[in-house]
Structures are given as structure tokens and as C-alpha cells.
Computed example of a mutant assay.
Amino acid sequence: PPPPQIEPLPEGDPDAVGDAPPMPGEASPQNREQKRFARYDRNRDGVITRVEMMGSRTKAFKALDKDGDNLLSFEEWAVATADRFGAADADKDGKLTPAEFAATAPKRAAKAKCKC
């Protein structure tokens, strides 16, 4: 489906008095990239080591490695993939609609609410 239309911001009242409210800041691609880098740079030394890069995938790998031999066989991967497909195929027709496929997306942990 096409992306939703973005509605323009309201123009405001031309007869209003006082200073205009501040506009919200925009995240630049560099800021997003810096955040992504920081997620991998666990010890915050400004470089990402191989261990840091691979460390984020350890939990997912261990979940697929059912026999615990630190080797992922095709069978282990295929079973996990088939189970994931079967769980997403809500109408059990052997095909995934866009809505069913969306159910296969990794679940993001909810951000903690501010306790201000």
C-alpha cells in the first residue's frame, strides 16, 4: 500500500499576538546513525570491535541452536522459519498477506515511560 499522506501543519491565526511557539527539532540522518553506532559500541570507546558487533545477535543465535552445539544447522533454521511462517499464516492458506507478513516483524521492547 502507498504511504499515508502527510497533512500540512496549520498556518495559525494571522491576528495572534506574541512570539511564535518553537518548532520541534528534526532528527538528522547523522543523529540516527550515531545512535545506531552507540548501540553496538558497548564500552563507549568510539570503535566497534567484532565481539561488540556479534554480541547483539548471540541471544537470537542461541534461540535457534536447539541442540546447543554452537552450530546452526539448516534443519534448525528451517524449523524455526517454518514455525514462524505457520504462526503468521492466520488463515492457513499457505500464503502470507501483507498484514500476516507484518506479524513476522521483530517485536520491539516498549520504552520505559518517564517517571518525571
Rank of each mutant, 00 (worst) to 15 (best):
E7Y: 08
F85T: 05
K92R: 10
K95C: 02
D83P: 12
N70R: 12
R39Q: 14
G25D: 14
G18N: 11
P98G: 02
G18F: 06
K92W: 02
T97W: 01
L72E: 05
A99G: 01
P106N: 00
F37L: 04
P98D: 01
D89V: 14
A16P: 12
A105W: 07
T49D: 03
L72G: 03
P21L: 15
A38C: 03
A109N: 14
P29T: 02
G55F: 08
E52D: 03
P29G: 02
P3T: 01
R36C: 08
I48N: 06
A27V: 14
R50A: 09
K66M: 05
T81N: 13
A60T: 15
R32S: 06
A20P: 15
K62C: 05
S56Q: 13
D83S: 10
N70D: 12
K59E: 13
G86W: 03
A27K: 15
K113H: 05
P24F: 09
D93N: 15
I6W: 04
P8I: 03
L64G: 03
S73E: 12
D19N: 11
A99D: 01
P3V: 00
T49W: 04
A110L: 08
D83C: 08
F61E: 01
R42T: 10
E75P: 11
A109D: 11
M23S: 07
Q30S: 04
K115A: 01
A82G: 06
P106Y: 00
N43V: 15
A112S: 13
T81K: 15
D15F: 14
L96C: 06
R36P: 14
E76R: 09
D67R: 03
D45K: 15
I6S: 07
P21Y: 13
D13W: 09
G86T: 06
T58D: 03
D41E: 07
A78E: 08
G18M: 10
D13L: 08
T97C: 00
F101K: 00
I6M: 05
V79G: 02
M54K: 02
M53Y: 08
M53G: 02
A87P: 12
K115S: 05
A38L: 12
A102C: 00
K113F: 04
D15A: 03
G25A: 09
P4D: 00
A80I: 09
P2I: 04
L72R: 05
G55C: 05
K66S: 10
L96A: 03
F101Q: 01
F74R: 07
